[in-house]
């Protein structure tokens, strides 16, 4: 109905809306997302084979090299005997000029390289320790993959199990479990993570544990809601009448019914896990260095924004593209597998 206002508008020659809709219809974005996700997963798994350099070892001669497509930055300076104080950005002493150009003479001009150009050996440039950023991003993808896999595996199993139990048994069990879920949802987890890290130090274990605490509740809530509906179905009552044991009903009869929900929740949770993990590692509360994590790579580049912006930018782009793709893919999957969930998110 609200569209009636729109319909009276004359069609323009280039309609950005139509163009966008056409793109959407062809699932171009979805295709790009899936491609990016496969790329991240593939490079993460095959990191040692693909990464062009060692992610931990830097070459101090190649510090802060820009990405390959960026040329060198030069400036022209006048050759003088002694540069005046404060004018060194325009003047150069004769002795230094002759090191660049043996023919330099007083009063002449020389080209001075302010910053070296990009190098095809380091496609995305190098950081302040001369480490290859692309290789670190590839190994970072591996870390993100492992963390997402482990947390989703454990958190998903706990959440699904408790969700099944809460939904199936109902009453007191349900009430109790859902109150626990409420408490966990209200827990400020980034703060809890900081406390854990200061108390027992950074570790892979702490990071995954915090993330498991963070996500199991989301599985539990969603699965429980699904089971509440599913258990009223006739086939469940029939199984009960036929004498099926409780574990059998839970896992053989109810679990297959929630698999679609499980897949959708898991896909959408991956993006949240990656965002929270990168936030923790940005704050220095994630997986400890020197393991290259995307968040800590962004943090590493903070001090060099003025002369080497790519150190912070590149890993951030990796996070953005991965999470964006996961969200697009997850939305599509949700619409496909489980339209009911659309209202829940």
């Amino acid at each position: 109905m609200a569209n009636t206002v729109l319909a009276t508008r004359p069609p323009s020659a280039f309609n950005i809306t139509q163009w966008w809709r056409k793109l959407r219809r062809r699932h171009v974005f979805l295709g790009i997302s899936v491609f990016l996700l496969l790329l991240v997963a593939g490079t993460g798994i095959l990191a040692p084979l693909i990464a062009p350099h060692d992610p931990h070892k830097g070459n101090l001669a190649d510090q802060k090299l820009p990405p390959a497509w960026i040329g060198e930055r030069t400036t022209t300076k006048t050759v003088v005997e002694f540069p005046e104080p404060g004018l060194s950005h325009r003047q150069i002493s004769i002795s230094r000029a002759q090191r660049i150009d043996p023919n330099a003479a007083l009063g002449g001009e020389v080209q001075v390289i302010l910053r070296e150009g990009g190098n095809s050996r380091y496609l995305l440039g190098t950081d302040d320790l001369g480490r290859d950023i692309l290789s670190r991003i590839i190994y970072g993808a591996r870390i993100s993959l492992i963390i997402a896999g482990v947390t989703l595996g454990i958190g998903g199993a706990i959440g699904t199990g408790l969700g099944l139990i809460a939904g199936y048994f109902g009453r007191l069990v349900d009430e109790l479990l859902m109150r626990i879920v409420d408490i966990f949802l209200a827990l400020p987890l980034v703060l809890v993570a900081l406390v854990l890290v200061v108390a027992v130090g950074q570790s892979f274990f702490i990071t995954t544990m915090v993330l498991v605490l963070f996500i199991w509740v989301r599985f539990a809530r969603q699965i429980r809601g699904e089971v509440l509906q599913l258990k009223t179905m006739d086939y469940v009552s029939l199984a009960k009448v036929a004498g099926a044991s409780t574990p059998r009903i839970l896992f053989i009869h109810l679990f297959p019914g929630v698999i679609n929900t499980l897949i959708v929740v898991a896909t959408l949770q991956v993006s949240i896990v990656i965002l929270v993990e990168s936030t923790l590692s940005f704050l220095g509360a994630g997986v400890p260095p020197p393991t290259p994590a995307w968040g800590s790579m962004v943090a590493d580049g903070r001090d060099f924004l003025a002369d080497a912006w790519w150190i912070s930018t590149m890993p951030g782009v990796a996070i953005l593209l991965t999470v964006l793709s996961l969200n697009l893919f997850g939305d599509w999957l949700r619409d496909r597998l489980d339209p009911k969930l659309r209202q829940l998110n």
Partner: peptide, 18 residues
């Protein structure tokens, strides 16, 4: 809405500083 869900705030902040 999509970028709000997908862009890590710490990176956005750093990019805006730049």
């Amino acid at each position: 809405a999509l970028l709000g869900q997908s862009m890590p705030p710490f990176w956005l902040g750093i990019m805006m500083i730049f």
